[in-house]
Design a protein around this nucleic acid. Sequence first.
DNA 1: CTGTTAGCGCCTTCAA
DNA 2: TTGAAGGCGCTAACAG
Lengths: 345, 345
Amino acid sequence: MNKSKQPTIKEIAKRLKISTSTVSRALNNHPSIGLVTTMRVKKLAEELNYEPNRTAIFFKQRKTFTIGVILPSLSEAFFSAAISEIENYANSKNYTVILGQSLDDPERELKIINTMKTHRVDGIILSSAKNTREFDYIDVLKNAGIPIVFFDCVPDIPNINAIVSNLKTGMLQAIDTFVSCGHQSIAFINGPGHLPASKEREGAFIKGLTNNNIPINRDYIVYTDLSEQGNEDAIIKLVNLIDRPSAVVSFNDYVTLDAMNAVRKKGLIVNQDIYFISYANYPIWKYMENPPMASIEQLPGEQGAKASQMLFDLIDINVEGDSDDKSAIQGQKIVLESKLVNQHL
Amino acid sequence: MNKSKQPTIKEIAKRLKISTSTVSRALNNHPSIGLVTTMRVKKLAEELNYEPNRTAIFFKQRKTFTIGVILPSLSEAFFSAAISEIENYANSKNYTVILGQSLDDPERELKIINTMKTHRVDGIILSSAKNTREFDYIDVLKNAGIPIVFFDCVPDIPNINAIVSNLKTGMLQAIDTFVSCGHQSIAFINGPGHLPASKEREGAFIKGLTNNNIPINRDYIVYTDLSEQGNEDAIIKLVNLIDRPSAVVSFNDYVTLDAMNAVRKKGLIVNQDIYFISYANYPIWKYMENPPMASIEQLPGEQGAKASQMLFDLIDINVEGDSDDKSAIQGQKIVLESKLVNQHL
DNA sequence: CTGTTAGCGCCTTCAA
DNA sequence: TTGAAGGCGCTAACAG
């Protein structure tokens, strides 16, 4: 009933009239301890319901067996899928995950990073807020010896560890799909221009059109800040063009959702007057009466798993090689392919 | 560059030729320390980039300033909303949140609880897996001095701390709404019979019909195990009845999604041949061309906030009153109202 | 106002 | 194969 009666190694030692070091060693299966003593210790530990005090171990080992994961938002399906895999991986290594939502606010993001730093996490996985521009924390963390792995939204900075998805393949497939369905006026709602992910998408978009001998029409490329209003404004701009496009690739499925709503309000019919393809392959599509023609799967689960794997490699190196051979793995980037998934239209 | 050079309180003491306790006190703004020394200490700490070693503090204080949150799934909008608020609340108290997804698997749930226990979290907020039947861990945690607050899915056990939502009000409103739109054959897709939440809903359903002088038709109450298949089977059973109901209340929005898909496959038209109302007020409805007529808002954010508040009250009591006055607050239940939200049909 | 001392629970040399 | 002793970084009596 009383919480203070948690048995310790000392208690066991006293009862068994042996030293604490012997108990410690027995509990950790140290080879130099006699089988009998080991058994006796373990038996009593069992009876007493002994559990090692992790906080003491953390302290002693200078490790917390905890990793931090910072994401813009848990409610986006992409991120909840990613974190599930991260959690799985971490648990399999007997690590715990602590969580932070930046809500795409750079200040909040920084605050979370600092909290995690003071909590001495052993490593961090981060999908940056969309409009973070300052990345000084990277050096701070490096100095603190905390490895960090980026994924999804990765800053354009040399020598960082990251998992990124190849946005190009998906875009090219999207355009080919549109073209093969007879579309020639294809537009693109891109995200904020400063994001590497936006640049990559835009390059691929242009490439895709060129591949299909479609001239580039600058009016067909619009931008959104990813807010609901921004998304609506973007699609409205396209819809109001004299030569309204018949097909739209958009930055991601959330943009598409808002765009579809706006389009309907204008009296147009989705999948008849105008067609969509976007990134993320949002699971809700299967419940929509008029989903996009296709969606580009970005494999959040795999990204999460790979990111975890990379992070644990870095953590292990940190522990073993106390030297600088950690630089060996520093600045690694893994690229995952994206691929188009057709919806059942 | 080297991680081992983290300055400690000792280092500061040595440089300033004062004792470590003075440094410690100065850093913690202890009133009995001279202003000058305090300033000198703080200045040097700043210069040295000193940061307290939390693991040492955790160890010393026998607290981790960490709470555990266990949820069936992060991808459900209800839970991601709840956890956002929990996180906010915890952060405002300088606590960190560690996270676990049970995926509605009782074994996994138990494993997470144990991990959190060995990690010595200061408290736990738990929305139980739908089919957990063993609650022995409640006593285990109590013995370990770890308070626990349930929310959303709360076991039917006396003397537990919980936040629950009043499912009755919402159900009565739902039925009144249906009736006032002319519906007389109203059916109900309930969740697993063993859940308290199912019993409460069913009681209210019957009450609602009675209030409106509608006779109870047992065929109009069906059950699902909440799997996609179960959801489909349930609605199909209703749709195949000779006197097919024109209105359906369902356990939650996810059930409704599957039901709508199944109904459409049968050639029926939602919001014309058959109408829906369900629990949860899933944010995606605003993007659907045919959302349910209404949805019962369960205020996940508020539930999360209240749960956090209750948990921190328990934690504080644990710390201050080392005696049993914790029983004073033991077994508290807070009920939040649910209310119907009409969709823009 | 400040220093001394002791100890949280565990692990790990070093010595026997 | 075992014990004794020391220390991780910090806080908190108890003394001055």
